[in-house]
Amino acid sequence: MPDPLPELRERLLRAGVRPGAVSRYLAELRDHHDDLVAEALSDGLSEADATTRARQRLGGIDALARPIETDRRFHGWAGRTPWAVFVLIPVLVHAAAVVSVVLGLIAAARSGHAPGRLAPLLDAAQYLAGGVIPILGAWLLAVIAMRQRSRLVWPLAGAGVLALLSASVRLSLTAPVSGQPGEIAAGLALPSILHVLALILIAMLPVLWLPATLCRRFLAAGGR
C-alpha cells in the first residue's frame, strides 16, 4: 500500500487549498500515522502490517481530501481568484511602484541636485520601472504559481501583462535650471516588441535552472 500523503498534497494544492493549510494538515496526518504505527507495533504486528493498518485507519485519499477540497475556507486567493492574484494585483503593484519611482524623482529634483546628477537618476528610474520591477514581479508570480500548482496560463498571463505595461511606461525629466521650474512626466506609449520579448525571456530564465521534476509538476497542474 503506497504512502498516500504525497499524492494527497498534490491533489489539495491543485484544488486550490492554501499551501500553509496543506502543510499543516499533512504534518498532523504524518504524526497521526506514526502514532498508529507505534500502537500497532506495540500490539505485536510486523512493521509492514503495522503500516498497512495505520494507513487503513487514517483513511483513503478521497476521504482525506474531500473535506478540505470542498470547503472554500481552506482555499487560497490564487485558487479562488487567480485572475486577481496573477493579473490585477501585479498591475496595481506595478502602477504603485511607478508612482513611487516618480515621487522619488520629484524628491530628488526638489533637493537641489545639479541637473547633471539628475540624468543618471532618471536612467535608474527607467531601468527600475521598465526592467527590474516587472522581472522581479514575474519571478514572484512563478514562485506563487509553483507553490499553489496553478495553471501555467496564469503566471504567463501575469508576466505578459507586466512586460507589456512596463515596456509602455515612459518617464522624462527636465531639470530645473536658473529659476525655471523643471518637469517630470510619466505616461504610456506603444511598447517596443523587442523590449517586451526581452523582458519575457529574462523572466523565464530561472525555469532553466529548475529541477525537471518541479517543471513537470508545474506543467502538469491543470485543475484550475
Partner: peptide, 28 residues
C-alpha cells in the same frame, strides 16, 4: 489529534468510526 480520535473511539465504544484523518479538517 491522535489522542482525540482515541477518546472518540473510547467514548462511543467504537460505534462511531471515521477515517481518523478526517478529524483534522474539523479541528482546523
Amino acid at each position: 489529534g491522535y489522542e482525540l480520535v482515541q477518546a472518540i473511539r473510547e467514548a462511543t465504544s467504537e460505534t462511531i468510526t471515521l477515517g481518523e484523518g478526517v478529524v483534522y479538517p474539523v479541528l482546523h
